[in-house]
Design a protein around this nucleic acid. Sequence first.
DNA 1: CTACGTGCAAACGGTTTGCAATTCC
DNA 2: GGAATTGCAAACCGTTTGCACGTAG
Lengths: 136, 136
Amino acid sequence: MNKSDIKNAGLKITLPRVKILTKLESSDKRHWSAEELYQELISDGEIISLATVYRVLTQFEHANIVLRHHFDNDSTQSVFELNNTEHHDHMVSIKTGKVVEFYDEDIEKRQKLVAKKYKFKIQDHSLVLYGEFEDE
Amino acid sequence: MNKSDIKNAGLKITLPRVKILTKLESSDKRHWSAEELYQELISDGEIISLATVYRVLTQFEHANIVLRHHFDNDSTQSVFELNNTEHHDHMVSIKTGKVVEFYDEDIEKRQKLVAKKYKFKIQDHSLVLYGEFEDE
DNA sequence: CTACGTGCAAACGGTTTGCAATTCC
DNA sequence: GGAATTGCAAACCGTTTGCACGTAG
């Protein structure tokens, strides 16, 4: 529920923050670069600066409201997604940039096993498959 | 064997290229940023420019002599590794930056299964575990 | 000899930041 | 009113590039 997330993060409820969070929550698109989000808001007629989009997304990241990914495939941009679903990994089309989320219990389990074997405490992980979908 | 790799890539055998490849082949360290490699060569007394290190590493990447990774954890730098071993994934310490390679047959298999399920043709994948080793 | 490679310094692109003006509570 | 936030433009940092000079074959 929108505004309380912002407040819970210890942040003031400002127009830019509400606009960004609302856009993330209301859009079908789940994966955004800062630039894309900025452009979308601008074309919605909102008045906001790219610097603020970056600042807010970084704050949201620290508050665990969004996740930041690096699909370093085509570009070096960060990609942000609302952190409102179960953990998942990603398949990224190198052709169209399309992103699909997936989850595989076995992969998760095996990762934990590997970590154990190496006496490694996993704090996070990133798994991205790059390729193409048959229908594109 | 060193020089023929360079030649096979359609590249002239120049001093900078030989120095870089030799360093990669002779060092225990397997994962290098361009800057680290540059500094190491400089402190070896070599004369080379950072731009050349970048150019050569990019050429080597295209020739499949090295692999480029993005352990986007601590920084946004590319990390390069000599492509002279079997495929593997990485565990990266968020504390020390230490990188350990691992391979898990099951994870590879499950990735292929997931891809099949989504009618996705995997061309590449990146799996990185971030955390800490017990002994650091 | 000449095509290819290099060093330098300047440009690049995504992101961050200092500062003065504005907004939230 | 005062602390937090914003917009702007400039800085930043890793990487790339144009160009004049150097070097491999």
